[in-house]
């Protein structure tokens, strides 16, 4: 897919909470320390953090890099599976906090881990159709896993925001995108239920791998590119192995993955995961670099994007804290403190 008006990323911003739960803590409590772990540690939101606060900080960082007046944003779209309210938009809180109200379209998006890139696709379309000069798309989550479940090792918190604008103002312009979606119930959460259900190994081949490979292969074919044309590739990262394996299947190497593979240090930040990886890749990108991003959302689908970094990227990188600066700001917690921070204790 290509918009009729050429568009790109004008500003980007990341946020990762301060606290970390080592995977060894989950293993210590639930398996006696036996067995492998899918990540080294995961980010844990503080007691005063939720998807709205995470989205606000990522959005402020994106605005700092873009130097766009928030009043000129025509969309603030927040993708998440952990919106703080069941009924009441997260986006209105974010838009008010960053000064984007009232001449703005606000909506909360839902598509499991690709809710944020779905919003990003729409933001490119909004600017690409000339309905707006600037649009903001955010992916943010505070994911929960059932105690002792495989997801508890990885379900994490973080956010990434992008200001989309015309190509000539972009730090990375969009070459094309592709979305690949089928009805595949690999992971879901019913209303009023606190924790999600998942299909175990079914989340792999027919879900994650099928959808990402299909989306990326179609995008590469459409553009006439091969994996070696890219300086960096970022995939949805529910753990460390899945993105490494899908990269191998598609023909990307470990060097291309390095800048944007954060799951080992922050876990699976769900709607933020691929977008947060992209912010880390943009932090170290050089003009002319081509970057691939492919998300995955259970249910299921993948959005793939190809970007080319422009000459103004280096100047904008330093205007806000880097993604790695947030990752380095770590305070480890043990399982007991984690249960308090994630409100897993029944108080009444």
């Amino acid at each position: 897919m290509k918009p009729s008006r050429e568009v790109g990323i004008v500003g980007y911003g990341a946020y990762v909470p301060r606290y970390r739960l080592p995977a060894s803590e989950v293993s210590r409590v639930w398996t006696g320390g036996h067995g492998g772990v899918p990540v080294d540690e995961k980010s844990v939101p503080g007691l005063d953090e939720d998807t709205a606060t995470i989205a606000i900080e990522a959005a402020r960082n994106a605005l700092l890099r873009s130097e766009v007046d928030p009043g000129d944003l025509r969309s603030v779209w927040v993708g998440s599976e952990s919106h703080p309210y069941a009924v009441k938009p997260t986006g209105t809180i974010v838009a008010e906090a960053i000064g984007a109200t009232p001449a703005v379209s606000v909506a909360d998006w839902q598509f499991a881990c690709k809710a944020g890139t779905e919003a990003l696709q729409a933001a490119f379309a909004l600017v690409g159709s000339s309905m707006a000069d600037y649009a903001m798309a955010i992916g943010a989550d505070t994911a929960q896993g059932r105690p002792g479940d495989a997801l508890e090792y990885t379900a994490a918190a973080g956010g990434a925001a992008f200001v989309v604008g015309a190509r000539e103002q972009s730090l990375a312009y969009l070459e094309a995108s592709y979305s690949y979606v089928t009805d595949t119930p690999d992971f879901f959460r019913r209303p009023y239920r606190h924790y999600p259900e998942h299909g175990g190994r079914f989340t792999g081949e027919p879900a994650y791998f099928k959808h990402i490979t299909a989306a990326v292969q179609a995008l590469l074919e459409e553009l006439g590119y091969k994996p070696t044309d890219f300086a960096a590739a970022v995939f949805h990262q529910p753990n460390v192995k899945f993105p490494q394996r899908v990269a191998q299947i598609l023909g990307f190497n470990k060097d291309q993955l390095k800048a944007g593979l954060l799951a080992g240090q922050v876990g699976n930040t769900y709607a933020a995961a691929a977008m947060l990886g992209l912010t880390a890749a943009l932090d170290v990108a050089k003009p002319g670099d081509r970057i691939l991003m492919a998300s995955f959302g259970s249910g299921a689908g993948s959005d793939a994007f190809s970007f080319v970094v422009t000459d103004v990227a280096c100047e904008r990188q330093a205007r806000a804290p880097s993604t790695q600066a947030y990752i380095a700001r770590r305070a480890p917690v043990d399982y007991a403190l984690y249960t308090r921070y994630r409100r897993k204790l029944q108080m009444q």
């Binding site: 503080g46 005063d48 953090e49 939720d50 606060t53 606000i56 703080p84 309210y85 809180i93 906090a97």
Partner: peptide, 19 residues
């Protein structure tokens, strides 16, 4: 930073503000 200041019970509003 903008954070949660408090929650007004399970049915009430979430109060956000500066910290």
């Amino acid at each position: 930073v903008t954070r949660k200041l408090k929650e007004e019970g399970e049915n009430g509003m979430i109060v956000y503000g500066y910290k």
